[in-house]
Each structure stands twice: as C-alpha cells, then as structure tokens.
Computed example of a mutant assay.
Amino acid sequence: MDLLVLGGTAFAGRAVVDEARTRGHRITVLNRGTTPPPAGVTALTGDRTRPDGLAALQHGTWDLVVDTWSGAPTAVRDTAKALSGRAGHYTYVSSRSVYADDPVPADENSPTVDASPDTDTYAAAKRGAELAADHHFNGPVLHARAGLILGPHENIGRLPWWLNRIARGGPTLAPGPRDLKLQYIDARDLATWILDAATAGRTGPYDLVSPPGHTTMGELLDTINTVTGGHADLHWTDPQTILDAGIEPWTDLPIWLTGHDYAVLHGGNVTKALSAGLKVRPVTETVADTWIWLRALGGTAPQRPDRPAPGLDPTREAAFLATLQP
C-alpha cells in the first residue's frame, strides 16, 4: 500500500514508519525537515503552521494516511481538506486526554472536552483535530486515542529518565506502592494496531493502551534495575511521604501518579481496542529495547522542544532520602 505519514521521524510516527517498512508499504513522510527521515521513505518537507506548508502534497495519492499532529487543529483541518479525494483512509493519532471531567473509567462513549479550530490546550487541541478530520476528510476516519506511550525513540523523557537514573545506581527513590498497577502502550504496539485497523477500514475512536495492571510500579522499576545492571538500591516510599516533601508525581517522578489523576491515566477501559485486535508486549521487552536504543545514543535521548524534560533533581532526591534514614 501507499502510506503517507504526517510526521514520521519521531517516536509514534517513527514506529508507524518502521512497522510499515516490515509490511513492504511504499512510505511518504511530510515534516519540517529538522530531523533526518528514516531510511527507505520518500521525504517531503513542509511546515504545517505556514500558509504554504502543504505545497509538497499537491500531487499524489495514498491508500492510508497517519497524522501525528499535536498542535492547533487548523493544521489537521487543512490537511484533511487537501487530501480528500486523494487518500483512502485517515488515521489521527489522538489522546485519551480528550475526555471531559476526567471520568473513571473512561471509554470511547465518555463525554469529550469542548474544542474549536484555534484552541491551544492539549486536550482541546486533540479533540479539535479529531473534529477537523471528521468534518473535512471525505472518507473513513479513525481516531487512535493513545494513553501513556513508552518505548524506543521516546522523545518525552519518561522511560529514558528512569533508565538513566536507575543505571546511575546508589540509593534511589522508588515511589510506592510496589503493587501500583500501570497502564501504557509501547509505541510499536500502537503502530501495529493502527496499520491493522486502517487496512481493515476501521473508523471512529479507539482507546489504545494496555489493560489496567499490565505491569506494576514494582515490576517496572525492578525490570529497569535488572536490565541496566542492578546498581540501584530502590527505597520504596509511601506516596504521602513523597507528596509532603513537595516532590511531584509525573514531572519529578515520571509515569507515577496518585489519587484521581492516577485513576484517570492508569484505569482506562480498553475493551473495544482489545476486541479489535490490540496486542501488547511484556514490559521486559519494552524496557530492554528502550535501554538498547538509549545506550546507542550515549544515554541522551532526544527531547521535544515543546515538552519540559521530566525527572527529579539528584540533589533534591539525595536530601529527601537522607530524611528517611532512621
């Protein structure tokens, strides 16, 4: 098939390109050209925030389109218009953040946030892009509402931070409880499902993340410790003790959350996606492959310029751990 990936050089988009290559698809990518394209693709350059950003797509037809845009919905609107009649199926990589009022557990029937073409908050922008694709693409549209995405090529910094921190070894803050259930998706499993679903002509929203409890905080950090050499002395600590010290979930300690935020992110209902063939690999594979990729880069992962790098400052961590000593 002829596949157009809008993006295609980083993380989820890169995973789609890699999976498509294994299937023998003819792949075109369109992006700003700031990151080298993967091998074996036709690379087109265009900045979708500019009036002429879609000029490179004036000609050509594609069977499938995968759009990873996360900015203002106007870019998706303009692209959907431009490709109508020249593409067979449009997949927009959205987010489970589109749900309104943080329902627990959320599923595809839950209410979504209000959105408009020029909205600038993340949740509303993702929902606005969904609406733009629905309204302006003359063909089947699939919304891949991803949850927490991990795996090789991650440019957000969550799993890479934990890998580097635990590889550094020594006393290490481990946010409890150990049996805290986690829910995420490997970018490669997301890519596989997207291409399968698009080929099958699936439409509408699908929440794409592992079943709740696919792994636990304990299994994740223990696996990281094993994979990176076992140098860390994990100090499992009660959540309230961590919060009382002003250490923030998600930003200081990536992936880990508490309270309602935890229930929203790690307790989604993914029955629909599982029934549609979603398969998720074990956490050991995600961790090991991400570590191999990270080491090949010398330990420094790429970081999206629009996202702050997560992770607890080593001095703050050491000072906090010292307060726990008897």
Rank of each mutant, 00 (worst) to 15 (best):
R188C: 05
T228Q: 10
L173P: 15
P212M: 02
T192E: 10
G204A: 10
G201E: 13
P205N: 09
R188T: 10
Y184P: 14
V209W: 01
T192F: 05
D207P: 13
L234W: 02
T203A: 11
T172L: 11
D233L: 14
Y206F: 15
R188I: 08
I194M: 14
D189H: 09
G176R: 07
P212D: 00
G229F: 10
H235G: 00
G230D: 00
L208D: 00
L180A: 03
L173G: 04
R178S: 12
L208F: 03
L195F: 09
N225P: 12
Y206Q: 08
G230P: 06
E219G: 14
D233C: 12
T228A: 10
G201S: 13
L190E: 00
D222R: 08
P177L: 05
A187T: 11
G229M: 14
E219M: 12
V209K: 07
A232D: 03
P212L: 02
Y206K: 11
T203V: 14
I194Y: 02
D222L: 11
D196E: 12
L234P: 06
P177H: 07
Q183A: 02
L182C: 05
D207F: 12
I185L: 14
P212R: 03
R178T: 00
P175G: 00
T228S: 02
R188P: 13
A174R: 06
L173F: 06
G218A: 12
H231E: 02
A200D: 15
S210L: 08
I194N: 04
Q183W: 04
H235E: 08
D196F: 08
D207M: 15
T223F: 08
P205M: 08
E219D: 15
K181Y: 07
P211S: 04
P175K: 13
H214P: 13
P212Y: 05
H235D: 02
W193F: 14
A200L: 12
K181G: 11
A198S: 15
A187V: 12
L180S: 01
